[in-house]
Nucleic acid binder design. Structure first.
Length: 233
DNA sequence: GCCAACGTTGGC
DNA sequence: GCCAACGTTGGC
């Protein structure tokens, strides 16, 4: 039930502050900005990449426009993240098991695309990175929080969250329509976005993207120079 | 364990 | 605001 807006696929939504408010910040961001090599968006499983010792890349959805859920505004845009102290916030509210498991698989410094959903212009707005690995989502225990889960016990929390830090905006906003166009073309050609979870697992709010391998044609690449380019279309 | 009812997600 | 997709619930 909850939606998380920082939503999970059933997931989570961050709340803004809210009563339960949340979004606290945490930890210090690292220093390095990381680099992440190139990450292509695709579908492969994170665990597979991890087995290869490659860091994963993720896509996380949040709603950038105001919407009340149980009286609480669940709006949380990338600009809201950037405005947080240390540009860091916890990604709470995910209440879908699959999305939660992806949160638990995230490692420090891995990058995630910040996706704006349920809004006038859905698409990828920017990049953030994981600055604290999974820990219990406190909002599950807060009765006034839209994502309160009375079935979860303090000594055995069901839901997890991570802390994320703003990295940068996309050099150019990548609209859902554009991603969809490529996804459809790739379904026919076997291209890299043919199984992109954004389209194949429609309601999943936290999803893995496949990291490109050297020499492969990447769909979307995050370069260490912080540029964002589309190289294969 | 099946599956219909129901609730949520999220594009349009 | 509509509604298709799809996850969850709960009776049986």
């Amino acid at each position: 039930m909850p939606r998380v807006r920082k939503r999970p696929a059933g997931a989570a939504r961050p709340d803004k502050e809210g009563p339960a408010g949340k979004r606290t910040n945490t930890e210090k961001p690292g220093e390095a900005s990381a680099k992440v090599g190139n990450s292509s968006l695709q579908e492969t499983s994170a665990s597979r990449d991890r087995g290869k010792n490659l860091s994963s890349c993720w896509l996380m959805k949040s709603e950038p426009e105001s919407r009340l859920e149980k009286g609480v505004d669940v709006k949380f845009s990338i600009e809201d993240l950037r405005a947080q102290p240390k540009q860091t916030a916890c990604w709470d509210g995910v209440r879908n098991y699959q999305a939660r498991n992806f949160l638990r698989a995230m490692k420090l410094q891995e990058e995630a695309f910040f996706y704006h959903s349920n809004c006038r212009e859905p698409g990828i707005a920017g990049l953030m990175k994981i600055v604290k690995e999974a820990y219990p989502d406190h909002t599950q225990f807060e009765k006034n929080n839209p994502h309160y889960d009375p079935s979860s016990k303090e000594d055995n929390p069901k839901w997890s969250m991570v802390d994320v830090q703003f990295v940068r905006m996309m050099k150019r906003f990548i609209p859902l329509a554009e991603l969809k166009t490529h996804h459809q073309a790739h379904r026919a050609t076997g291209g890299p976005l043919k199984n992109m979870a954004l389209f194949t697992r429609q309601r999943l709010s936290v999803q893995p993207l496949t990291r490109g391998k050297n020499g492969s044609r990447l769909l979307i690449t995050c370069h260490s120079d912080r540029e964002f380019t589309c190289t294969s279309w």
